[in-house]
């Protein structure tokens, strides 16, 4: 997926392949500006005018949704694939009651009668732990955490096969964040849905996802089961991200920061895109795209992977 700008095409998502099984949750992690949210809006095809998907395919239950027309795509949105937005605070229309905004989606996709729809909203509010008395209230009467729950309730309304959660808890304090993550996991298990979590927060990703993709500069540079990726990271970028996060249970240590910024995607670096910031970069890294190192399902694109330390 590219953004067409006056300065040229920004290759925000470039050569990314992944799949999510039913009931599985995938975490996408990376710094700001590495293409995580671009993947999210590509999956629902709600791109801004400047963005184009030039090639590739998005298979949803075996159907490629890329060539679908807007009218056909509407049938998939929310019913099969829904989304919890990054800015949940602003994802509710301020001039309508929250309950009505959920009913709007229900009437559209499920075609439920008004009384059934209200009943369904009650169920959803129970599911996400919101009081029924808030159904006919306006978004500004909700607190941040409640809005987030309402947004999750809305995403669940039509029982989609997959939910894309783009930074679902970033704006919340850690206590509310933890509760909401736990509830999302509970709901996912109960309804056997797939989820894609997008976050820059390693701790959140570690907690909620079965498999993890680490993104850098529009690419997935490392992918694998959560345990493998976090315990035996291969890619230097993953290791840098990990060492930038404190561990609550582990020993106290100086947090390492990763100098520099993600590259300008108008002209991505040659070879390995991480080489300008990589402490292990060699001549090969600068000139040749890195090979894929595989350790079971766990893989990473790197020229100089560390020794395999797994037992």
């Amino acid at each position: 997926m590219h953004y067409m700008t006056r300065a040229g095409a920004v290759r925000a998502v470039d050569g990314v392949t992944f799949s999510v099984e039913r009931g599985q949750s995938l975490g996408l992690v990376g710094e700001s500006g590495c293409g995580k949210s671009s993947i999210a809006i590509s999956l629902l095809k709600i791109l801004p005018d400047s963005a184009r998907i030039l090639s590739g395919s998005i298979l949803l239950e075996g159907v490629d949704i890329l060539p679908l027309s807007e009218d056909e795509m509407r049938e998939y949105r929310w019913k099969r694939i829904s989304m919890v937005f990054q800015a949940a605070m602003n994802s509710l229309d301020p001039v309508y009651r929250v309950g009505d905004q959920i009913i709007e989606a229900l009437e559209l996709h499920v075609g439920s009668a008004p009384s059934e729809a209200v009943e369904r909203v009650r169920e959803l509010y129970d599911l996400v732990g919101l009081n029924h008395s808030f159904i006919p209230r306006y978004p500004h009467e909700y607190s941040g955490g409640m809005k987030q729950r309402a947004i999750i309730a809305m995403a669940l309304a039509c029982e989609p096969a997959i939910i894309v959660a783009d930074e679902p808890t970033t704006a919340l304090d850690v206590i509310v964040q933890d509760r909401i993550l736990r509830e999302m996991r509970k709901v996912r298990d109960a309804l056997d849905m797939s989820m894609i979590y997008i976050s820059h927060d390693m701790a959140v990703i570690a907690e909620v996802s079965d498999v993890v993709g680490v993104m850098y500069a529009g690419r997935i540079v490392e992918f694998g089961e959560t345990k493998d990726v976090f315990e035996n990271p291969i890619h230097p970028y993953t290791r840098a991200l990990m060492s930038a996060f404190p561990s609550v249970t582990g020993e106290k240590r100086e947090l390492a920061t990763l100098p520099g910024e993600p590259p300008n995607l108008l002209a991505p670096p040659s070879g390995c895109r991480f080489h300008p910031r990589c402490p292990y970069a060699t001549e090969e890294c600068r000139s040749q795209p890195p090979p894929t190192v595989r350790r079971g399902v766990h893989w990473a694109d790197c020229w100089n992977p560390p020794e395999d330390q797994s037992p």
Binding site: I41, L44, I46, E70, M73, R74, E75, Y76, R77, W78, K79, S82, M83, F85, Q86, A87, N90, S91, L92, D93, P94, E104, A105, L108, H109, M154
Partner: peptide, 15 residues
Amino acid sequence: REDYVMAARAKGLPE
């Protein structure tokens, strides 16, 4: 440009 407009589109509402 508001987020709730993107949310409305994501809900599959007609243009």
